[in-house]
Each structure stands twice: as C-alpha cells, then as structure tokens.
Amino acid sequence: MKVSVQTEDFDLDVECAALTHGRKDIGALASFVGLVRDANDGAGIARMTLEHYPGMTEKSLAEIVEQARGRWDVLDATVIHRVGELKPGDNIVLVVVASAHRGDAFAACEFIMDFLKTRAPFWKKEETPEGGRWVDARESDDVAAEKWKGR
C-alpha cells in the first residue's frame, strides 16, 4: 500500500506499473485521477491552493485504504494527493486499486475516493476574478460517502 501527500505531479502509468511489477495474481486495476477544472460554481478559476493537515492527512488516507481492504479483496493500492498551488488541467488526486477481479477493484476505488472527499483533511482555496475563496463542502459528497453504509 502506498499513500503519498506531495507537491510533485504523478504519472498514472508509472503508478500502475509499480503495482503490477513482478506479480501475476492481479486481474484488475481500477484507477481514478482528479484534475483541476477551470470553472466552479459559475466563476473562472485561475489557480487553486490545496492546504492539508500534515500528519493527520497521511493517517486518514491510510485508514481509508485499510477500510477498503476490509470490505473488498484488495491486493494492493496507491493513493496520491497533491498539495500546494495548482492550476487548471493539473492532476490533484490519484487512486489505483489492484484486485483479482474487476468488481472489487471498481468498488474499492470508488469507496476510497468517496471517503477521501469527506474524511481526509484537505481544503481547496480557489483564485477567481473576484479574489480568493475557500471551496464549500458539497452535500452530494456526504451523500456519496453515506451510500456505502448500507452495502
């Protein structure tokens, strides 16, 4: 399992290759990459800054991955989240899950993202033409995380 909070960019192909290197038991890799959009809530976004809680962030991500391992057949996983200043088109977050079968890989990947969005201590501040603004948490993200309770 790999969890990283970093300012540097990441490469999906490199991370996938690292997960599968030297093993033949992986039948499925599911990945998600989140990027910075150039617009949000009706305003243009020139750039954004990702703040986090050093120490708690890494623990929180590791716990979320552990929860996913407890629910699905996860052989390995990688979670990378960038912090610092980012601009539209930049990568923000990467989740890759390796499993024997696609069902576990898809579900665990979505679960990790849904819980990351609502549990991991990151905050986005957007620079718009009207100035800087902290992004409000979305109710839809809470709903997305809640849906896993009944499964």
Partner: peptide, 10 residues
Amino acid sequence: VAFFPPVTGG
C-alpha cells in the same frame, strides 16, 4: 486539538 471547516479535497 485541531479546529477546521468541512474538508474539500479530492
């Protein structure tokens, strides 16, 4: 002890 607004990463 940390105080903060709801998280908005990802």
